[in-house]
Design a binder for these strands. Structure first.
Lengths: 205, 205
DNA sequence: TGACATACCAGACAAAAGTCTGGTACGGTG
DNA sequence: CACCGTACCAGACTTTTGTCTGGTATGTCA
């Protein structure tokens, strides 16, 4: 019936599927069918399989909602975007996601797997001279070790704090970047390194 | 059988589902079942539905792979994301995109239409005390006017510069936030306000 | 003109996945 | 102790979804 010019519908199908995939909701064949008012799921399937054959879509065959972004576009060209939880409170116990209350998710461009990143809102002015102000959001890569000079997040007792790590005469210390604050030795019993700050973000009015 | 302490498995199920959702691949009930080696899909379902009842998960009932992030987490996430061009060089002529060379695009969460935003890499230390360092990326909302106190981007001659706008005795001035630099009056012939900085980003190592 | 490709449809089958009924086992609690 | 709630299981039903077979219509190109 209403035949469209060659390749035109296909591009629109690709755009539709891509959008859904980026939203985290892979569409079904029939969802594509209805979005384009096809009267047969097969029509949608032909477009989808065509895009897969052309390498413009990936697919997990047989599984429901199995169409994916192509492996090429994910691995090579651009740095993938991951959703990072902004945790309002870092629990003293486990560094796992489950025990922290998540306020919202932030999109970060990183090659790091999503699970190993979290975001934290900074309180206080102790890192002022490093350009990290109160209210800023820091993206943190979970890691138990860091190099001297790295800006890190550590758990002191029950509180998460952002400082610069300095290894001074073989002893690790957390150095604030503000002359009003004092360094904190990291070898305390109740101190633990949570991760390294890989990005800082600040929103202005 | 292997009964686990109350609520423990549930938290792990939540972590599992959340991770899958963030990866853009919502799991099926049976995928959860197998991930936790339950012998009945119903067991997985009970945990999932429990998490939905507790408001920790959302769900599109009946549909396959229908579990979602809870509405609370999505509410803010639903602020649209726009792709903002990171311009390497701000042309002296027009403030339009076409004449600027775009290095890459950055994802920003903003209700502002995409066309009215651009991003710029900061050079120099003139805004050091405002927490904006050399190499930082600022997201700028194009606007010809701004309030006193706003951090703005202005074109001075052929060069874009980031400063704080101060209206001082009726005269607009661009104030650096670094005592080593001098304020610049904005009423010069070759000066023009490009926009207001709405976000600052810094990537560390 | 015929061979071929694209775009689409009808209707069905089969696998995947959501859902339900009815259970067992264990721990706490009045 | 009986009672309730949590954690789990077996097995089946139903819907959703992927897939297939066999078609029509239209355009291109030798």
């Amino acid at each position: 019936m209403g035949k469209t010019p060659a390749g035109q519908t296909r591009q629109q199908v690709l755009a539709f599927v891509r959008q859904r995939l980026l939203a985290g909701e892979p569409p079904t064949v029939r969802e594509v069918q209805h979005a384009f008012k096809f009267r047969s799921p097969q029509t949608a399937r032909e477009h989808l399989e065509g895009l897969v054959d052309a390498g413009m879509l990936g697919k997990e065959s047989g599984k429901s909602r199995g169409y994916r972004l192509p492996a090429t576009a994910r691995g090579r060209a651009s740095i993938p975007q991951v959703l990072v939880p902004l945790v309002g409170h870092v629990a003293a116990g486990s560094p796992s996601l489950a025990t922290e209350d998540v306020d919202e998710y932030i999109t970060v461009r990183s090659r790091t797997p999503a699970g190993s990143l979290f975001a934290l809102r900074v309180r206080g002015e102790s890192m002022r001279d490093a350009g990290i102000l109160s209210g800023d959001v820091v993206i943190v890569h979970r890691q138990a070790r860091a190099d001297s000079g790295d800006i890190v997040v550590a758990l002191i007792g029950d509180e998460a704090t952002v400082k610069r790590l300095r290894v001074h005469r073989g002893r690790a210390e957390l150095h604030p970047e503000n002359p009003d604050f004092q360094p904190i030795p990291l070898d305390r019993e109740d101190a633990r390194l949570l991760g390294r700050v890989i990005e800082v973000r600040r929103t202005l009015g």
